[in-house]
Protein backbone atom coordinates (compact mmCIF):
# COMPACT_ATOMS: atom_id res chain seq x y z
CA UNK A 1 0.00 0.00 0.00
CA UNK A 2 1.14 3.54 -0.67
CA UNK A 3 2.42 5.51 2.28
CA UNK A 4 0.74 8.49 3.89
CA UNK A 5 1.88 12.05 3.28
CA UNK A 6 3.03 12.02 6.88
CA UNK A 7 5.23 9.03 7.86
CA UNK A 8 3.64 8.92 11.31
CA UNK A 9 0.22 8.16 9.75
CA UNK A 10 1.50 5.34 7.51
CA UNK A 11 1.05 2.47 10.03
CA UNK A 12 -2.52 3.64 10.79
CA UNK A 13 -3.19 4.00 7.07
CA UNK A 14 -1.90 0.50 6.29
CA UNK A 15 -4.22 -0.92 8.94
CA UNK A 16 -7.17 1.13 7.68
CA UNK A 17 -6.53 0.23 4.01
CA UNK A 18 -6.37 -3.48 4.83
CA UNK A 19 -9.68 -3.28 6.72
CA UNK A 20 -11.36 -1.28 3.99
CA UNK A 21 -10.09 -3.52 1.19
CA UNK A 22 -11.40 -6.71 2.75
CA UNK A 23 -14.72 -5.03 3.53
CA UNK A 24 -14.88 -3.68 -0.04
CA UNK A 25 -14.38 -7.13 -1.59
CA UNK A 26 -17.22 -8.45 0.50
CA UNK A 27 -19.36 -5.47 -0.43
CA UNK A 28 -18.89 -6.11 -4.16
CA UNK A 29 -18.87 -9.88 -4.10
CA UNK A 30 -20.68 -11.07 -0.97
CA UNK A 31 -20.52 -14.72 -2.07
CA UNK A 32 -16.73 -14.68 -2.36
CA UNK A 33 -15.92 -12.99 0.88
CA UNK A 34 -18.57 -14.30 3.27
CA UNK A 35 -16.03 -14.40 6.02
CA UNK A 36 -16.86 -15.44 9.55
CA UNK A 37 -14.80 -12.58 10.96
CA UNK A 38 -17.03 -9.98 9.26
CA UNK A 39 -18.32 -8.45 12.46
CA UNK A 40 -14.91 -8.18 13.99
CA UNK A 41 -13.54 -6.60 10.84
CA UNK A 42 -16.28 -4.03 10.75
CA UNK A 43 -15.53 -3.11 14.32
CA UNK A 44 -11.78 -2.78 13.73
CA UNK A 45 -12.42 -0.83 10.54
CA UNK A 46 -14.30 1.74 12.60
CA UNK A 47 -11.49 2.10 15.11
CA UNK A 48 -8.78 2.09 12.44
CA UNK A 49 -10.71 4.70 10.46
CA UNK A 50 -11.03 7.10 13.39
CA UNK A 51 -7.36 6.89 14.35
CA UNK A 52 -6.13 7.25 10.79
CA UNK A 53 -8.54 10.10 10.03
CA UNK A 54 -7.34 12.11 13.03
CA UNK A 55 -3.72 11.58 12.03
CA UNK A 56 -4.21 12.52 8.39
CA UNK A 57 -6.27 15.60 9.23
CA UNK A 58 -3.33 16.91 11.23
CA UNK A 59 -0.92 15.97 8.41
CA UNK A 60 -3.02 17.89 5.87
CA UNK A 61 -2.96 20.91 8.16
CA UNK A 62 0.79 20.64 8.77
CA UNK A 63 1.48 20.39 5.02
CA UNK A 64 -0.31 23.70 4.49
CA UNK A 65 -2.89 22.04 2.23
CA UNK A 66 -5.98 23.02 4.21
CA UNK A 67 -6.86 26.22 2.35
CA UNK A 68 -6.20 24.89 -1.16
CA UNK A 69 -8.23 21.80 -0.31
CA UNK A 70 -11.11 23.96 0.92
CA UNK A 71 -10.89 26.02 -2.25
CA UNK A 72 -11.00 22.87 -4.39
CA UNK A 73 -13.99 21.58 -2.40
CA UNK A 74 -15.84 24.87 -2.83
CA UNK A 75 -15.15 24.90 -6.55
CA UNK A 76 -16.10 21.24 -7.16
CA UNK A 77 -17.99 19.80 -4.16
CA UNK A 78 -18.42 16.43 -5.98
CA UNK A 79 -20.97 15.32 -3.40
CA UNK A 80 -22.78 13.00 -5.81
CA UNK A 81 -21.59 11.06 -8.87
CA UNK A 82 -21.35 13.16 -12.04
CA UNK A 83 -24.02 12.37 -14.69
CA UNK A 84 -23.09 9.50 -17.01
CA UNK A 85 -21.05 10.47 -20.03
CA UNK A 86 -23.13 9.59 -23.16
CA UNK A 87 -20.11 8.40 -25.15
CA UNK A 88 -19.03 5.87 -22.50
CA UNK A 89 -22.59 4.53 -22.27
CA UNK A 90 -22.69 3.98 -26.01
CA UNK A 91 -19.36 2.25 -25.81
CA UNK A 92 -20.75 -0.03 -23.11
CA UNK A 93 -23.81 -0.92 -25.19
CA UNK A 94 -21.74 -2.15 -28.11
CA UNK A 95 -20.48 -5.11 -26.11
Amino acid sequence: MASSLSPECTPLKTQYDACFNSWFEGYLEPAVAASSTKNRQEYSKRKAEEEYKACVQKAVKDSGLESTLQQARDEHPLKSPPPPDPSSLEQGKKH
Binding site: A2, S3, Q57, A59, V60
Partner: peptide, 14 residues
Protein backbone atom coordinates in the same frame (compact mmCIF):
# COMPACT_ATOMS: atom_id res chain seq x y z
CA UNK B 1 2.94 2.30 -5.00
CA UNK B 2 3.76 1.25 -8.51
CA UNK B 3 7.25 0.90 -10.05
CA UNK B 4 5.85 2.35 -13.30
CA UNK B 5 4.33 5.38 -11.57
CA UNK B 6 7.06 6.27 -9.08
CA UNK B 7 5.93 9.91 -9.10
CA UNK B 8 2.98 9.01 -6.82
CA UNK B 9 4.55 8.81 -3.36
CA UNK B 10 1.60 9.06 -0.99
CA UNK B 11 -2.11 8.30 -1.04
CA UNK B 12 -4.42 9.35 1.79
CA UNK B 13 -8.13 8.86 2.31
CA UNK B 14 -9.44 12.10 3.79
Amino acid sequence: PNPKCTHVVSVDVI
